[in-house]
Amino acid sequence: MNDQENIEHALAVDDAPVDTEGALARFRARVGREGVLPVSAAPRRRIAARWLQALAAAAAIVLVASGLALSGAADSILKIFEPKSVVGVPLTQGDLNTLGQACAGLELEQCLGAYGTFAWDTPPQPKEVTTLAAASSAAGFSVKTPSSLPIGVTGQPRYGVINKSSATFTFSADATQRTAAKQSRTTPPLPANIDGSKLFITGGPAVVQIWGVPQSSSPTVGSGMPTLVVGQAKSPVVSSDGVTVAELQSYLLAQPGVSPQLAAAIRAISDPASTLPVPVPAELAVSHQVTVQGVSGLFIGDNTGIASAILWQKDGMMFEVIGALTERQALDVANSMK
């Protein structure tokens, strides 16, 4: 008996037949019991799509004033959020644990469904194009691209375009209480003026440029990350049919699990209607304001110094540079964009 046969013998087990149908029935019962929804669609290219989806979620949502005006609803609509600047908001591990309960592993729609009804009017549909010109044409704006790249970022980028997307969110006191009950926690009752009110969200169009993902890549579990991602999107706009930012903020910050530090950081935002708060895990990353393209932006770096990101807003557009870069390199890339 050779060594391999010895090991095979040592690792041999009784391969008892399994009852697949019985196991599937148990699985169905658990899914029903815990109310877990499936992930709906597989991204064609996993790595690229992950970035596209992240940007789509970040740029999330809906109803543009033009659409509302056409429907005659404009008089009752109040624009409550349009970012003109970005700021980091530190989250502790405790915040992440608590706030993550409602959304762990869920898509945006499912997560927001814990507090009401989220419906895409025009869902984001990322697609890939082959050239910068095609990306500009599809997005309807001139796409800026870095004029110089750091050492280590080579080759041609891939281009993703996300259409202008819109969605409506309707707050529901019932859904909020159901979710809290399912998670065995108590939550303050949704104020009557928020229950049933709607948010109209529009985001995009957006374009992402991704370096370091081969054209022919067939991603598998744990495949490498892109070396550089540059995103540009029309600033998202959130409108409301009644509720104000202050009312929303007051309710959300009263949720159990929101630490005093997090609440203070969010309340410290002087103009919440035009400032995009970017969550920064305090134990994992650092952040500070930087000047980029002549405006104030936000630098986020992980504690290992391996990855960094810069986000800024200028001329009605949101920009982001993300990569395995030092802060200096990330700033150089951001400032070289034309």
Partner: peptide, 11 residues
């Protein structure tokens, strides 16, 4: 897997 991935994912 069910919670976080699509069943028809290539991986």
């Amino acid at each position: 897997f069910y919670r976080t991935h699509a069943a028809d994912a290539s991986y």
